[in-house]
């Protein structure tokens, strides 16, 4: 197995699948300003996915390109965390999913900028600028919804209860990571788990939200095992490429 290729898929698929999810909301936001914000975040994520999958295709060197990787794999070959494929639900679900992800991504890209792989470091640097805005946006909404009305509090508390179990997978590591950590390419995720937990807890606290007591953590997206939701997302996303194969668009 080519570890760098695998690593790039993991990061790139997180961006791709979440970007795809957010793009479903375009034109249906709770307020026009939010339609602009959500579309913009989706656009950033699709841009990151393009950079990462382009590089992945180059590293793989089997004649595939970014579009091939984005649109022509089967579900088991996608390596995103299960968190990002969860449905948009209501606005509270969308923002909570985004917050748990953005908080991870910011700390991750900060460290990935130091990668000895210059291409990866450059992508991380660019993506970090975007992610800082995403995190500011999602944190502010979690606080507003949590410390807003009784209804918004109860809704977003429910979002937290259902999404909380997916956050641990963000810190999944295996031999792919270990090999690349030794080469100075990948980030050792253990080094910022505490910082992540403490940041998340500060925001949840300000939002007057409580993490659920259950700490059962699961998710195996990094190994290609996904929830039922991914298949539907892919059916829609891959429709054109599957229906009209080998055409230029």
């Amino acid at each position: 197995m080519n570890s760098l290729f695998e690593y790039l898929l993991r990061i790139g698929d997180d961006s791709l699948i979440l970007g795809q999810r957010l793009s479903e909301l375009c034109g249906h936001g709770p307020i026009l300003e939010e339609d602009i914000a959500t579309t913009n975040i989706s656009l950033d994520l699709i841009g990151q996915a393009t950079n990462l999958l382009t590089y992945a295709a180059e590293v793989e060197n089997l004649g595939r390109d970014a579009d091939n990787l984005a649109f022509m794999r089967i579900d088991r070959e996608y390596k995103n965390v299960v968190l990002v494929e969860q449905p948009n639900g209501d606005f509270g679900d969308t923002m909570m999913r985004q917050f748990l992800f953005d908080a991870f991504r910011k700390l991750f890209f900060e460290r990935l900028q130091q990668s000895k792989d210059f291409q990866l470091a450059a992508i991380a640097e660019k993506s970090l600028k975007e992610t800082r805005y995403h995190l500011k946006h999602s944190s502010e909404w979690v606080i507003r919804l949590g410390d807003g009305t009784e209804e918004s509090h109860s809704r977003v508390q429910h979002s937290l209860n259902t999404l909380w179990r997916y956050r641990a997978e963000l810190f999944f590591m295996d031999e792919v990571d270990n090999e690349l950590i030794n080469k100075g390419i990948a980030v050792d995720l253990k080094t910022f788990r505490n910082e992540y937990d403490s940041f998340v807890s500060t925001i949840l606290n300000e939002a007057t939200l409580n993490p659920p007591a259950q700490n059962w953590e699961f998710g195996s997206g990094r190994k290609g095992k996904h929830s039922e939701h991914l298949g539907h997302l892919l059916a829609e996303m891959q429709y054109m490429q599957r229906t009209y194969p080998n055409m230029e668009w």
């Binding site: 375009c26 602009i36 699709i46 970014a66 996303m237 054109m240 009209y244």
Partner: peptide, 18 residues
Amino acid sequence: ITRAPNLRRKAVLLAKVQ
């Protein structure tokens, strides 16, 4: 947007609708 045929078209369409 969700069915755009490739990454470039998806990004352009997102930008346009935004």
